[in-house]
């Protein structure tokens, strides 16, 4: 059963007289427990789409249904938001408390979770992002990657079923990016968390179950990483850049070498060695 369903969803931003395109005619079904990567350049509509998923934005046309609840159903909006957790770009702007465990407790407190239960959730969430030892610390001395892991834990404490990372790796250095990616993959694998990762780095999509490329507010292509990465013209048009190993494989193909399409560096090495 799909946990999120979008039926013919369109949304435009309106400021005064001006309309600007958000997303158009999106049809999408997201299955529980999948790792989905939403790719697109800045302004492609990927963040708009994310904000439609937890009721931050309500579609002008079409329906967004999360766990059987319409996002239009304003009375149940917090049922949706507690189930669809969202982490943003800048970890500094997402923390409300100056002590880490207090920050984690903020979400459950808002939901009226009993005290003992909050305690358990904070324990679990810190464990899940591997930040146990920082429980009583302050965020100021943490690295970008660590801060973002705390931001993820703060969402996990609400026990969401879906975790949306809205460009949560964009501001981090490579080490921080790797930490966040590793955390997201582990949550998906070990906790059966549905993860929707929004990014413009294609190399973050190579291990996804499904990749969706947005361009100009519409789905340009959708499928497994291999199905998507093969469509070089569409990728180029969408303003994205293939991982180095894929680029090299495609160039070798052009030169007449029978190299398959690869996504990982290791795959490329293997393919080249086989030709030797």
């Amino acid at each position: 059963m799909s946990i999120i369903e979008l039926n013919n969803v369109s949304f435009d931003y309106q400021s005064g007289e001006d309309l600007s395109r958000g997303v158009k005619n999106i049809n999408l079904k997201i299955e529980k427990g999948k790792f989905i990567v939403l790719l697109g350049h800045n302004g492609s509509g990927k963040s708009t789409l994310a904000k439609l998923l937890n009721g931050f934005l309500i579609p002008d046309e079409g329906d967004v249904i999360v766990n059987g609840i319409h996002t239009k159903d304003t009375k149940r909006i917090y049922d949706i938001r507690a189930k669809v957790g969202m982490v943003f770009q800048n970890p500094d702007n997402q923390m409300v408390a100056s002590i880490i465990e207090d920050d984690l407790a903020f979400g459950p407190e808002n939901l009226g979770v009993p005290r003992e239960e909050i305690q358990k959730r904070v324990d679990w969430a810190l464990e899940a992002v591997n930040m146990n030892e920082y429980r009583y610390g302050t965020p100021y001395k943490l690295s970008g990657g660590q801060k973002q892991r705390i931001a993820i834990a703060a969402i996990l404490a609400m026990l969401p079923e879906i975790l949306i990372l809205d460009e949560s790796t964009a501001m981090l250095d490579p080490k921080g990016r790797a930490e966040v990616m590793e955390t997201a993959k582990r949550l998906n694998r070990d906790n059966n968390m549905t993860v929707i990762l929004i990014t413009h780095y294609m190399d973050e999509a190579i291990d996804a179950d499904e990749v969706i490329v947005l361009n100009d507010g519409e789905i340009a292509i959708q499928g497994t990483p291999k199905e998507v990465f093969r469509e070089t013209e569409i990728i180029k048009e969408a303003g994205l850049e293939l991982p180095v190993s894929t680029q090299v494989a495609l160039l070798l193909q052009k030169a007449g070498h029978p190299v398959p399409l690869v996504l990982h560096d290791e795959e490329l090495v293997e393919a080249v060695c086989r030709l030797k």
Partner: peptide, 20 residues
């Protein structure tokens, strides 16, 4: 240093260990 090789250099190194 906490830094890693660029992808290109990484691929070349891996090929080297495979004898290419």
């Amino acid at each position: 240093t906490g830094l890693s090789l660029p992808h290109t250099a990484r691929i070349r190194r891996m090929l080297e260990t495979q004898g290419v």
